[in-house]
């Protein structure tokens, strides 16, 4: 099994590279992978194709890479910490909290674009803590395990979303600017937020990678991890902080695009294992590939109409979500892994 892991990792990387080139090649006008590579490495300012690749498609592709990497790692870590296969940033209130705060900042407080990014981070924490609080109110157990946590998150996500929608609806003149973002979309107009905040997401991922071993130990049980030398409380909160910050930045850029964070870890685990030292890089790369492909599909499936990436992702993700629920909650031959 170990022996298969590095080839699997290489395969995932190859898929991501192909997805990246394909994402840059296809669009309103298709161009050869060769000219895409030329645009990236030998940019000719007079070449129209090169211009399209570098200033129109590359920002989208970079946003997709950032979104996928951050969401997939966030999902993997939250699934490990809660020991629940349904945990993900989109379900535990992080994405919806970030969205709500961006809308409040933009519509009610007239905060400029960069400030909205900061609002997203605050909102991500707000959303997650809300989710924790509601779970504590429902169940007496202190450990945020199981379905109660997921259900509180799902309900709160709806609530956050509903409030955000109500605020947007109250301001007809501006809501059209936000409508596409609020349903989750990869769009090059928000690339300056990626430029301003990408380092926060990268910092979050590096932090998670540095905590890969203790995070894996925590999936063996809190007592077991503590006895092996892990400061469980500190690692838990540091990693949740890293996830919330990086996911909130992604939401500030592309709105609440959820399912990649839920689904990617389930694909990665059988391929490279559940040990985070390999699983986190694999999640980052595969999450990026999935977002690149979903973005490509959204742009080309109904050409010349361009679909929102978020809608595309929800369509795919809904199906996979049902499969995961069936496998982990409705199957009779459940294994001990997630109890």
């Amino acid at each position: 099994m170990n022996g298969r892991r590095y080839p699997a990792m290489a395969g995932i990387l190859a898929i991501a590279i192909i997805a990246f080139i394909a994402n840059l090649s296809f669009g309103a006008s298709a161009m050869s992978p060769r000219s895409v590579v030329a645009a990236l490495f030998a940019f000719d300012p007079d070449n129209y194709d090169h211009f399209v690749v570098l200033y129109q498609r590359l920002p989208r592709a970079l946003i997709a890479v950032f979104l996928g990497a951050v969401m997939a790692c966030g999902g993997a870590v939250l699934q490990g910490l809660t020991r629940n296969p349904l945990a993900s940033p989109g379900i535990l209130g992080v994405s919806s909290g970030a969205m709500l705060f961006v809308v409040i900042a933009a519509f009610l407080l007239d905060v400029p674009s960069q400030g909205q990014g900061v609002a997203a981070i605050l909102g991500g924490f707000f959303g997650f803590l809300n989710c924790l609080l509601v779970t504590r109110l429902i169940v007496s157990s202190k450990e945020p395990h199981g379905l109660a946590f997921i259900l509180s998150g799902a309900v709160l996500s709806m609530l956050h979303g509903a409030i955000a929608n109500a605020i947007m609806l109250s301001s007809p003149s501006r809501r059209s600017d936000f409508l596409s973002w609020a349903t989750g979309n990869i769009n090059h107009v928000y690339v300056e937020r990626l430029r301003d905040f990408w380092w926060l997401g990268a910092l979050g991922l590096v932090m998670l990678l540095a905590m890969a071993r203790p995070l894996t130990l925590i999936t063996l049980g809190r007592d077991k991890a503590a006895s092996a030398g892990v400061d469980v409380t500190r690692i838990t909160w540091l990693s949740i902080g890293a996830v919330v910050v990086s996911v909130s930045v992604a939401v500030a850029i592309c709105g609440p695009i959820g399912f990649v964070g839920l689904v990617t870890p389930h694909i990665v685990r059988p391929l490279v294992g559940a040990s985070f030292r390999l699983a986190l890089p694999a999640n980052a790369v595969l999450g990026a590939a999935i977002c690149l492909l979903a973005d490509l599909a959204a742009r080309s499936a109904f050409a010349p109409h361009v679909l929102n990436t978020g809608i595309m992702m929800d369509l795919l993700g809904g199906i996979v979500f049902a499969v995961i629920v069936k496998r982990y909650y409705l199957s009779t031959s459940e294994r001990g892994a997630w109890r």
Partner: peptide, 23 residues
Amino acid sequence: YLPQENHCPDHISLAELVELGGY
């Protein structure tokens, strides 16, 4: 410390488990 009940998530190999012991 060896707890009374031990649960390992799926997709962790024996080598990975033992390596975590030295954390």
